[in-house]
């Protein structure tokens, strides 16, 4: 069906991002394909190493623990932080990934986790790692005849520690910054959302951590310099407003690191 309709069609997978835009007449798709009640997309599977979630699983189902969370509570926490409950009861994980807003929870969180998605068209099915899936503002490697059918999540080792930090000005709003830190024996995965058009891997911060004594949180200034490097920012050239935005990201990352590295504070 998507092949036939081409660019005139939009997939409605909950609609909590699409409907607001349509209500403003900023999007006027000729056809909507509602997949929110397709049974195949609503199931969850698990084995010893991974969990597969159907793309039409709602944030609320994850929040309420109706599907397994192989990430030691990270998924549940991330889901509960999305907008408001009435939004979470309609919005779906697949829909959020396809919408590809880097300020939203799933793109950054699931990328940090190292999740893959299954993408299907009438002819074909492929598995795509989320790292590399997001191309820019609201654009992904999805073709117009493709839809996300499932998300595959690796199980965290028991010793894995994680933190999800969101800085926003009002409860439930999109984050001005969102940092995910996942730390396990000898490795760290640190990602930043809402900073650029796609989730950003904070490779310099990861290196900083690797070079740092275990369990010690680097100073905020150090983190800020590394975040700036990861965002390709030249600090002396920034005006005050831009410096504040960098500062917010740095503090958010620093808070995430503090939580993930602190042995006393449970994540």
């Amino acid at each position: 069906m998507l092949t036939e309709l081409g660019d005139d069609a939009k997939i409605l997978a909950g609609g909590q991002s699409l409907l607001p835009i349509m209500n403003l007449r900023l999007a006027e798709p000729a056809h909507l394909v509602d997949i929110s009640r397709v049974g195949d997309l609503m199931g969850a599977d698990e084995d010893t190493t991974s969990v597969t979630l159907g793309a039409a699983i709602t944030h609320q189902a994850i929040e309420d623990g109706l599907v397994p969370d192989p990430c030691l509570g990270l998924l549940t926490t991330a889901a509960a932080g999305i907008g408001y409950r009435a939004i979470r009861c309609r919005g779906t994980v697949g829909g959020s990934l396809a919408h590809a807003d880097s300020a939203a929870e799933w793109p950054t969180v699931l990328t940090a986790i190292g999740a893959d998605v299954t993408v299907r068209s009438a002819q074909d099915e492929r598995t795509v790692p989320l790292r590399g899936f997001f191309h820019g503002f609201f654009t992904t490697s999805l073709e117009s005849d493709e839809l996300i059918t499932a998300v595959h999540l690796p199980r965290f080792a028991k010793s894995t520690r994680w933190a999800l930090e969101k800085t926003n000005r009002k409860e439930g709003e999109f984050g001005e910054s969102m940092a995910v830190a996942i730390v396990s024996e000898g490795s760290a995965s640190i990602w930043l959302g809402a900073a650029k058009d796609v989730p950003v891997n904070l490779a310099h911060v990861e290196t900083l951590l690797a070079d740092h004594p275990a369990d010690q949180v680097p100073a905020l200034g150090e983190v800020r310099d590394r975040v700036a490097a990861d965002l390709d920012l030249s600090v002396p050239e920034l005006d005050l407003a831009q410096r504040h935005r960098l500062q917010i990201h740095a503090v958010t990352v620093h808070r995430a690191l503090s939580r993930a590295l602190s042995p006393e504070v449970p994540a």
Binding site: L12, G15, Q16, L19, P20, N23, L32, D34, S36, R37, Q60, R85, A86, I87, C89, R90
Partner: peptide, 19 residues
Amino acid sequence: CTVLMDGLPVRSCLTLAAS
């Protein structure tokens, strides 16, 4: 505009009747 749909709260402004 919040209403219950199958027992859960939803935004009726962001829910198509067709859904």
